[in-house]
Amino acid sequence: MDNALLSDVTGVILVGGRSRRMGRDKALLSLGGAPLVARVIEAFRRVFARTVLVGDRGERFREFGVEVISDIHPGSALGGLHTGLARAGTPYVFVAACDVPWPDSRVIAHLCSLRSGYDVVVPRTDGGFEPLFAVYGTGCLPAVERMLRQGNCRIYDFYPEVRTRQVTMAELAGLAAPERTFVNVNTPSEFEHIRQREEAPMAKAISFVAKSGTGKTTLLEKVIAELKSRGYRVGAIKHDAHRFDIDHPGKDSYRLTAAGADTMLISSPEKLAVVKKHEVSPPIEELIATYFGDVDIIITEGFKKSGLPKIEVHRRERSTTLLCRGEQHDPTLLAVASDEPLELDVPVLDLNDPKQVADFVEERFLTQRS
């Protein structure tokens, strides 16, 4: 799949549940500063051209700016699936519950990429099917309608009647972690456990942003060297909006990746490198949590649209305007490293003094290092 949003698959989020075991609406539980349903909406918007909410009490969610469709047969997830299939107007839907704390857009995109020739594409973990994180085609409608008439609401009971593609965890290796990707929330104790996992300490990160040709990479080289000289463990992430290769044609590692390996790791006594293919770029927060647990500070280059705290690099001869002040007002901006004096609401650092920039990073992020 390329980076275009899917137009023949509608993202369907089920919001009709009564949350009886939770005691309050699961969809609106706040995690990481956002309601659970908003996290699912955001993941869907990375993959689908259209996302809808399905539920008989959908008016509660109009503030999220997503179309709401009332249940035709309220009271069950199967009924929500039926409504999505009947009303979406696309050959396929991807169905998810509203209480998925860590919906992974890469997994969603991969499951959708397998849809051709099937009525259902469903993950299967050691615990069984994951019917509320799966692809369904309109070919399922006759079987779903029959089950609703019979009063059988167990979704996976109709799988043997249609063309079903089971996706194993081995196929999702490197993409899905069952203990994370397919988790949902049912009880207060489950939510508390998830909240604690979400709020576990993560490595501190700051993003340096700039217009191209400003000298951002040169400054970062010197800031990283300065922080290393002070004894800190430093990680670095470079954002590249284009395709790239880290090895070269003819090398064994290149040949293995070119042959189709989804994850390729090369290791030596000094270092290792991982090449991992993905269909949708993972969020920066996920990269940090996955790969940078052993550092004190992460310096990222780019990621202008992320929610990370930022230092903008400004050079007078390159531009008279700033990215984070003027063209827009980015509340995550902490400072500007500039080669000219500026009147701003944040500190202005000397672009030509990497020690001063490192001092600022150390003071803001590292003085409380344990």
Results as ranks from 00 to 15, higher is better:
G58L: 13
A77F: 10
G128Y: 05
V346Q: 07
P201S: 04
V121A: 05
T290L: 11
A225D: 08
V15E: 00
R45C: 03
E42P: 00
L333H: 10
P131M: 03
G127Y: 15
S267D: 09
N152P: 00
E279F: 12
P341K: 10
R315W: 10
S229C: 08
P103F: 01
E363G: 02
A4Y: 15
G231M: 03
R39C: 08
Q166M: 11
E327W: 13
I194S: 07
A134R: 12
H242G: 14
E179M: 02
T138Q: 08
D247G: 00
R57M: 14
A210K: 08
C140T: 05
P160N: 11
T164Q: 05
L344M: 11
I266T: 11
L342G: 09
P178I: 07
M1V: 09
K211Y: 07
V280C: 05
A143I: 00
V275N: 15
H73K: 12
T214Y: 05
P123Q: 14
E145M: 05
R233D: 10
R180P: 14
D245C: 00
V346M: 06
G84D: 14
P160D: 02
L322G: 09
P131K: 01
R195P: 00
P282I: 04
I108Q: 01
A86L: 10
M1T: 11
A173L: 11
C140Y: 07
H314P: 04
E192S: 13
G174V: 06
D99L: 05
N3M: 14
G84F: 07
F129T: 10
Y159K: 13
R165K: 14
R106C: 13
A97M: 03
T90R: 07
T51V: 10
L114Y: 02
N352D: 12
N186L: 12
Y92W: 11
V12T: 08
G235N: 03
S207V: 03
G260Y: 06
E145G: 01
I297E: 01
M1P: 07
I237N: 01
L287I: 07
V313L: 09
R163K: 09
T321C: 13
N352F: 07
L111M: 14
K305Y: 10
F191E: 03
G55L: 10
L14V: 02
G23T: 03
E190D: 05
H248I: 08
C140D: 00
